[in-house]
Amino acid sequence: MSRKLLNVLLPAAIGALVIAAWYGVRFALSDDTKFLLPAPDRIVAALIEQWPDLGRAAYNTTEGALLGFGLSITVSFVLAILLSLSPWVRVGLYPYLMILQMTPVIVIAPILVLWVGAGLKSVTLITFLICFFPLVVNTTQGLVSTDRHLVELFAMWRASRWQQLWHLRVPAALPYFFTGLRIAATLAPIGALVGDYTAGSSAGDGGGLGFQTIIYSNQAKYPALFATAAVTCVLGFIFTAGVLALSWFALHQWHDSYERPDK
């Protein structure tokens, strides 16, 4: 059997097994506990039934996730370049980056709500905070890990600091940047959802998936809750796929993480 076919069949078979096991567990549950595990068909039904709400919520969460993700890429890129300039900048700033990373979002969220109000702005900022750290750490690492011999080559050409940055350090950091980006891409939808859960608002065009989670939870709509989880997963997959595509586009011709085109 070809490898490609196996790549599809194997996950599909596991999926089928999990669904079968799911029904099995449900069958074993007593009638008054069956609500704990809604049947997959009930979840699909809830998804369709709740789509006007869920679709809008997914749209809002995507908006916050994209804005926060974009903001974190921009800020982390600039900051990584700053950090790469001198070990002293790194020594001075790293402790504060660590503090920022270690402060739980749950604590920061109410402060952000106080500052910029509940809703999209807060959600964006929370997503930014969650995505930011892996990006800045990886990109900085890439910018300072440039091959010593290539640095000498540029010194030989008497290249300016900016030429060295633009023609050497930045492209050499791309594989590291994409490693950070892949991590950030899985975090962005989760960040937006958590942000929405803690600092969301139903004002304006309504809340996101986090806000929807609170509503379904309060209304004990358990199948809808599972459907919300599924939608979030799909969102995460889309983000990751987008980043993988970008990464392929930027690296496949030259980087060893992709198969050699010939030879």
């Binding site: 011999h149 000498e152 050409w157 023609h167 050497l168 492209p171 050499a172 030259w254 980087h255």
Partner: peptide, 27 residues
Amino acid sequence: LAFVFQEPTLLPWLTVAKNVELALKLR
């Protein structure tokens, strides 16, 4: 002056032609 190092020191993200042209550009 021009220096040829022990390693080829080519920029892996540039084609052969672009590698040569970058040297010309930076010089």
